[in-house]
């Protein structure tokens, strides 16, 4: 079974985080929601593997 990578995998975490937030600067709530939804779809497709996606879904739903 393929495993979701939950180790740190992003080279420059602060740069990534700032870039992610910058996507939403000056956007309305509905524009931001739309960007987030598109981003989720794009990344899910990139991963593709349903086992990995299922693990990601579970992790996302944990509080």
């Amino acid at each position: 079974m393929n495993t979701l990578n939950t180790d740190a995998n992003i080279a420059k975490p602060d740069d990534f985080y700032a870039r992610l937030l910058a996507l939403h600067e000056g956007k309305s709530k509905s524009e931001s929601d739309a960007i987030n939804a598109r981003l989720v779809l794009i990344l899910c497709n990139h991963i593709g593997d349903s086992e990995v996606l299922e693990q990601a879904f579970e992790l996302a739903c944990e509080n």
Binding site: S30, D33, A34, A37, R38, V40
Partner: peptide
């Protein structure tokens, strides 16, 4: 609806 519209836009 947000996801549906995201699919149609993409």
């Amino acid at each position: 609806k947000i996801f549906r519209d995201a699919v149609l836009t993409l």
